[in-house]
Amino acid sequence: MVRYEGPDQATYLSGLAAGNYFFRVMAKGPQSAASSSWSQPFELQVVFVGTHQVILLSLIGLAGFTILVVSIMVGHRLSQREPKVLSS
């Protein structure tokens, strides 16, 4: 599959699924006849963060978020009930 053909000399890849990928490049002259042969393919390995780590950190995040929201809401409620002790 051809990923890119044109004058740019670099490219940026993202969003690949986990697995091994192979890429190779070829130089092309102005005439389609003048082109080099394919380079040695190089391998790219896409690995993702482990499941357990993701689940653990997400749970910690969810817990931290919930406690934070609840604390602010409770604090807000209680402070509204405080009669204006401060305006004195």
Binding site: A17, A18, V47, F48, T51
Partner: peptide, 9 residues
């Protein structure tokens, strides 16, 4: 060894 990426949704 299961990676989340393999649980592809």
């Amino acid at each position: 060894n299961l990676h989340v990426a393999e649980l592809f949704v």
